[in-house]
């Protein structure tokens, strides 16, 4: 049954495995809502891809599982479930399949879907953040509490507790909060060569440099270490910047690409009303990805940067 629907992709599986701890954490933080979102998003996402791929006579890629998982984790917990369905259908149908399916999409599907519903449903998004902890019941046992995310708190002048940021007990998207777990999961991906370390490091450095610069220049009130630990920069650096389909292949291009993501994220966060900085950063950088690959000189050693990334990429096979 499974084999007739899915084509096996080892790399994508490793990403899904690495996300399991984050899901468990989200479950602890927000309770049943995580399960509801997960179930609905996976069902809708897989179905959408199945409909498109059946037309082409192909199987569903396991990459769609990664897309669904990342999409789920990047949503605020109290978002109405029907909105997340629209988001994942848009992500898979428009951002991925309309470009030709797995390996040919220009933009990261999860990011595309997230931005689409973020802009379309700004009002529900703004009130979909919850107090974290206790399986979604909050400390007082009250079910639904609209909470301010650390970024909003800092805009209003209160500093969140740094340990809460590291452990993840703070309001935010379902999977973005625990810096500790993301780092552990991310390191697993880097050491299994599933994720390219250059992309992670350059994204984080870009964000750190700009947020520090803006802080010292007096433009932004958010100290760089808080900027790095809040929002979805950390999560995005490990999971969105490293998407092998939409990131460039050459070493030098990867450095520039990561820095682009990091800096644009901070720029959007500091200077606009949208607090989806990281998503915009990845989205804009996606546009430049192939251009960067084209412009950068070829690596001197033949195929030096290759091993982990491109082996499963049908981009080249198809081209």
């Amino acid at each position: 049954m499974y084999d007739t629907i899915f084509q096996k992709q080892k790399v994508m599986r490793r990403v899904v495995y690495s996300l399991i701890p984050l899901f468990l954490m989200a479950l602890y933080l927000y309770g049943w809502r995580v399960l509801a979102h997960t179930a609905v998003i996976f069902a809708a996402g897989i179905l959408t891809e199945y409909i498109f791929e059946r037309k082409r006579g192909k199987k569903v890629s396991e990459a769609v599982l990664v897309t669904c998982a990342l999409f789920t984790l990047s949503l605020p917990p109290a978002l109405p479930v029907w909105i997340s369905v629209i988001g994942i259908v848009f992500a898979v149908a428009v951002v991925k399949e309309m470009y030709g399916g797995f390996g040919r999409n220009v933009f990261n599907p999860a990011i595309g879907g997230r931005l689409f519903i973020w802009i379309a449903f700004a009002a529900p998004f703004a009130s979909a953040w919850m107090e974290a902890g206790g399986f979604g019941t909050g400390e007082a046992g009250v079910d639904l509490i609209t909470a301010a995310t650390p970024l909003e708190q800092m805009q209003n002048g209160t500093l969140p507790d740094i340990w809460n940021l590291i452990i993840g007990t703070r309001a935010g998207s379902m999977g973005e909060s625990s810096i500790l777990l993301i780092t552990v999961a991310g390191l697993y991906l880097v050491f299994t060569k599933t994720a390219q370390w250059r992309l992670v490091v350059s994204t984080l450095l870009g964000a750190l440099a700009l947020s520090a610069g803006l802080f010292w220049a007096g433009v932004s009130d958010v100290a760089p270490h808080y900027a790095m630990l809040s929002g979805s920069i950390w999560f995005g650096a490990f999971y969105f910047a490293t998407d092998p389909i939409t990131a460039p292949n050459k070493k030098s291009a990867q450095w520039i690409y990561g820095v682009l993501i990091g800096t644009i994220s901070i720029l959007v966060r500091v200077f606009t009303d949208f607090n989806a900085g990281l998503s915009f950063g990845v989205f804009v950088a996606n546009v430049f990805s192939s251009l960067l690959d084209e412009l950068m000189p070829a690596p001197r050693k033949k195929k030096a940067a290759k091993p982990a990334k491109t082996s499963t990429k049908p981009k080249e096979a198809a081209a």
């Binding site: 309309m98 689409f116 379309a120 449903f121 009002a123 529900p124």
Partner: peptide, 18 residues
């Protein structure tokens, strides 16, 4: 009914045109 704000903006016509 929750309005889809993005549909009020010009770029959304691209989706439908497509």
């Amino acid at each position: 009914f929750e309005p889809w704000i993005i549909m009020a903006m010009p770029p959304s016509a691209f989706f439908f045109l497509g």
